[in-house]
Design a protein around this nucleic acid. Structure first.
Lengths: 146, 146
DNA sequence: ATATAATAGTTTGTACCTAAACTATTATAT
DNA sequence: ATATAATAGTTTAGGTACAAACTATTATAT
């Protein structure tokens, strides 16, 4: 069987997609099992705010690797669920800062352990630091693509 | 600055998403610049057929890491563009085999070089075999998540 | 000072994702 | 043989992605 560079990279792109999907499905299963009406994407915005409450929409978009149009939509959905609210920035009225409601803060207690658990599973049976070096290699690859 | 396991894995998940996005954007730019009315996802189905014409929808879904409902949608779109057609399998009428039209075959000449070029960029300035071992590590991580 | 550029966010249109319920067909068990 | 399970594909509904055009606001250049 021939194993050309083309095939190697093709498998690589597929495997990236699969790992991405695995994270998503793992979390969505937890959410479904606990009857929590949230998607993976909404959760990634919430996680972001659990770390830094009150940042603006563009900052959330950068951190969560989404574009600002999606952010408008996602925040509308989170607002409907009364988990966040927007507030215009007085010092720069282009910005809208996003804050967690008390309901949004409370969810952290229930959900973050699942994320922590999932993240903990990642490094099993792998050499120490291998996730870190993996990430660095991925960064280089992304550089190569520009 | 603290660098907990949580943070390390969080960066990892983000970097995966970014690399995925980089592939997508690279290709979509090429398509746009050449006025080709195709999305990244449609192209991944086409690529699959360029390798193996006449496989069924579920097989395409497995290879392209999509689910069968998306496949129905994508193939409808490709059929509208007259690039593929479906044909019921006589030996098992549950299956629909998918074939390239001549137009779908011709596109390969124009598009595949762009993919090959992009795939070639991936390994730049990286040790030989590092993409391969990267893929293997990703496979292990995916195993860990089940 | 004022034209121009840059930035944040929204809207729109097209496309994609995915769980769940569904139809049709084939495989398996007893 | 026949009930049951498994499989392939479609449909539906709610949600997401993203380019392009848009408004509002702030920054920059001359």
């Amino acid at each position: 069987m021939v194993n050309t560079e083309y095939d190697i990279v093709a498998s690589f792109t597929r495997e990236i997609t699969r790992v991405n999907l695995a994270f998503k499905q793992h979390i969505q299963l937890k959410l479904r099992q606990n009857n929590i009406d949230l998607t993976f994407e909404m959760l990634s915005v919430l996680s972001c705010l659990w770390e830094q409450d009150g940042i603006n929409q563009q900052e959330i978009a950068n951190i969560t690797v989404k574009d600002k149009a999606s952010m408008t939509y996602l925040l509308d959905n989170l607002t409907k669920r009364e988990l966040v609210y927007r507030q215009e920035d007085d010092t720069d009225r282009r910005n809208k800062k996003v804050y967690l409601t008390s309901k949004g803060k409370e969810l952290r207690v229930q959900i973050q352990p699942w994320v922590t658990e999932m993240f903990g599973m990642v490094g099993n049976n792998l050499p120490a630091d291998s996730v870190k070096s993996l990430t660095q290699t991925l960064e280089k690859i992304r550089e190569n693509l520009r």
